[in-house]
Simulated scan of single mutants.
Amino acid sequence: MGKAKEWMMEMQEQAGDRHLAKLLGISYDDLMELEWQISTDESNEGLVYCYIVEFSDDSPSKILSKIDRLDDDNKVFLAPWEMEAEYDYINDQFDAITESRNTYKTFLSEIDQLLNLSQLQNEGDELKKILNRQIFIGLIGCMETFLSDVFLKLVFDNKMYFRSFVKNHPEFKIRKFELREVFDQLEQLELNVKKVILDTIFHNLPSVRSMYIATFEIDFPSIGTMQKHVLKRHDLVHRNGKTKDGCELIIEDSNLTKLIEDLKNFIKPIAKELEIEV
C-alpha cells in the first residue's frame, strides 16, 4: 500500500473518531483516552436498528462522566442516521491541526524523539538500516507538519494574512464567477481556503516558499540544502531507497545528525520571522 493511500485511510479513520466524539459530547482527545468497541443491533437481513458503543470498565471515569447518553452498562446507543452522517472532512482536519498551539516546541520535541529512536539498534544491524531510513522520512515529515500547521493557523488567526493568501495564491487568481454569485462565493470562501491549504504538498519547498513570502511578507531562508534532503526522502519513499541510477541509499547516524542540524537551521529563522515562541 502506498504512503498516500495509508495517509488517506488514517485521515478517514481520524475523521470517523472525531465524528464519534462529537456525537458523545466529548473532545477528540478525551475519546483517545477511552477504550471502546462498536457493534450493531440488526435484523437477520442486515437492517441496522442501532449502533452500540461500549466502553471498557478500565476507561477513565472522569471522561465517562462527561457522556450524557452513557447507560449503567457503559454503553451508548446511536441511531443509524447519526453514525452514517457524512463527516465534515475538511473542517475535521482543520480542527485537528489548530487544536495544538505549541508548534515550534512540538517540532523540536518530535525530532529529538526520532533521534532517540535511532539509538535502538546498533550500527551495522540490518534493522538499523531500515530504521534509519524511516527516521529520515519522519524527520522530513516533521518539517512538513511544522510548515503546514503554522501556515494554516496564522492564516485563520489573522484577517490580514487571510486576505493576503486569497489575493496572492494562484488557485484564487484563476477562479471566475458572476457578480450575482458573490454572496455564495463569500459563504464558501473559508472552506475553499482550508481545502487549498490542506491540499498543499508542504515538502514542495519552492511552492511553500512562495506562499510564505506572498502571504506573510517575511524573509524565507534558502531552500537549497533542505531541497537536497527532500529529494533523498523522495528516493527512500518512492524508489525503495534507491537513486535514479539504482544505487542503494544508506542512511547512517551521521546523515540523521546532519539532517536534524539543517532542519533546525531552516525552521528556526521562520519561527523568528513569524514571532512564534522559540
Rank of each mutant, 00 (worst) to 15 (best):
193 V>P: 03
161 Y>K: 07
140 I>G: 05
152 L>A: 13
150 V>A: 09
174 I>G: 00
186 L>F: 13
140 I>P: 01
171 E>Y: 14
156 F>Y: 11
155 V>M: 00
142 C>T: 15
175 R>G: 02
164 S>P: 06
168 N>F: 13
164 S>V: 09
179 L>P: 00
167 K>F: 08
150 V>R: 07
140 I>K: 08
143 M>R: 06
181 E>V: 05
145 T>F: 14
165 F>T: 00
156 F>S: 02
159 K>Y: 00
142 C>W: 02
160 M>H: 10
174 I>Y: 13
140 I>S: 07
164 S>R: 10
170 P>S: 06
154 L>D: 05
156 F>I: 00
188 Q>R: 15
155 V>F: 02
186 L>Y: 08
179 L>M: 11
183 F>C: 14
184 D>N: 13
173 K>R: 15
167 K>W: 11
184 D>H: 10
193 V>M: 02
181 E>A: 11
163 R>G: 05
191 L>M: 12
161 Y>D: 05
157 D>Y: 07
175 R>S: 11
160 M>I: 12
152 L>Q: 05
180 R>H: 11
156 F>W: 08
164 S>M: 06
189 L>N: 09
167 K>H: 12
180 R>G: 00
167 K>D: 15
160 M>N: 13
146 F>A: 06
178 E>H: 09
165 F>W: 07
149 D>T: 04
180 R>C: 01
192 N>H: 15
171 E>R: 12
145 T>G: 07
177 F>I: 01
140 I>H: 13
182 V>N: 10
159 K>P: 06
149 D>K: 12
153 K>A: 02
166 V>N: 04
192 N>S: 14
160 M>G: 14
165 F>Y: 09
181 E>W: 06
171 E>W: 09
156 F>L: 05
164 S>G: 12
171 E>V: 04
146 F>V: 03
187 E>K: 10
157 D>A: 09
159 K>V: 02
154 L>F: 02
186 L>H: 14
161 Y>G: 07
166 V>C: 09
154 L>I: 07
178 E>W: 12
